[in-house]
Amino acid sequence: MGTLVGHVAPGFAFFALGLWHLFNHIKLHALNPSSYTSLPWFPTSKFRYLELVLIMVCSSISISMELFIGPVAHQPFDPDGTIPSNHLHNFEHSAISMTFFVYAAFAVVLDMINGIHPNAKSGLTQLLGAVAFGQQLFLFHLHSADHMGVEGQYHLLLQSAIVVCLATSLMGIGYPKNFIVSFTRSLSILYQGLWLMVMGYMLWTPGMIPKGCFIHFEEGHQVVRCSSDEALHRAKSLVNIGFSWALIGVVAFAMSVYLVLVMFYGGKVEYATLEHHEDEKFELGDDDLEDVESQKGQRKLHGEPKSFIHMGKGYAIKDIER
């Protein structure tokens, strides 16, 4: 991962995943503002598990690059079977990818099993995602590579985005109907990907290196070193400014996307719901009505067949309208 491609490729994957979740959460909330329930992942019409399969594919490629393709000998061990010091970071990066692979694989398995309650499926999937982000935070915080310089500043700021991903994933278990939690989680995943791409270009493009600093080859990979404490301080300050500018840009982008999607999707379902409220609230409690709308939304997203109870409630509403 200690290369331009090694940061840009996974960064783009996180960015695309965050953007996909941001779009779908906003759309889902705009269509069902009163019965919104967040989803840990979103199925597609062509192939239900496309998102999860892509996560597993990207994770597998990352593991292969770190352990088998990237090393000169195409395997990460010394002749005596031990792990050399310059390959420790390869194992750390691959462990992160393995955890995300486990998350996606078990998310597919949990979705395929019919005997598990939907709330348990969602909660367990969110927990697996939180474990993946927790693993990522742990390994980046205690990284074996020397991150005391400019690269260390980039990784320190990256950890702040990972902390938000972890916190919102855990909050999503207890507050599945909170749109702001899902919105923030999607935005933090997107921002984590953007910052990884920025790291790749800024640390391994000679023309992007701050004045007074240079690229130096150490322990099997390139690192940025500075000629003086003043140059190092200036370089770190530039990293902080870049992080702030990127954050402003991402927030402005996310709010713009939200406003556009709300104007496009908002009101299409809400007006119909308001029309039903006046007639149905005399026969159905507010909680029951919310359950009906929630079940409609869940069936639409997950493609679950209508049960006898669901059909019964549907007929009751039709009778009231007559």
Rank of each mutant, 00 (worst) to 15 (best):
T3I: 04
F12V: 14
A13Q: 00
F14R: 03
A16W: 00
F23E: 02
L39C: 00
F47T: 06
F47W: 05
M56I: 10
M56W: 02
V57L: 13
V57H: 05
S59D: 08
A73K: 07
H74Q: 15
F77G: 06
D80T: 10
S85K: 13
H87C: 07
L88E: 15
L88M: 15
H89I: 09
N90Y: 05
E92V: 07
H93S: 09
S94Y: 06
S94R: 07
M98Q: 09
M98P: 01
F100S: 01
A107L: 07
L110Y: 15
S122P: 04
S122C: 08
L128I: 07
L128T: 09
L128C: 06
F133Y: 14
G134A: 14
Q136E: 14
H141D: 09
H143T: 15
M148D: 13
G152S: 08
L156E: 13
Q159G: 13
S160H: 04
A161R: 11
V164T: 11
V164L: 07
L166W: 10
L166S: 02
M171V: 05
M171T: 03
G172N: 12
G172T: 13
G174C: 11
G174D: 07
G174M: 12
G174P: 04
T184V: 14
S188P: 02
I189W: 00
I189F: 00
Q192V: 10
G193R: 03
L194A: 13
L196W: 09
L203D: 04
G207H: 06
M208E: 15
P210E: 01
P210D: 06
C213N: 09
I215F: 01
E218I: 06
R225F: 10
L232G: 00
L232M: 06
W245N: 09
A252E: 00
S256Y: 06
S256Q: 05
V262H: 02
G266C: 11
G266D: 11
G267H: 05
V269N: 15
E278C: 03
D279I: 14
E283C: 15
D288P: 03
L289K: 05
G297N: 13
Q298R: 12
L301Y: 09
K306M: 12
K306C: 04
H310K: 08
G312F: 07
G312V: 01
K313G: 06
Y315F: 13
Y315H: 12
K318D: 14
K318L: 15
E321C: 08
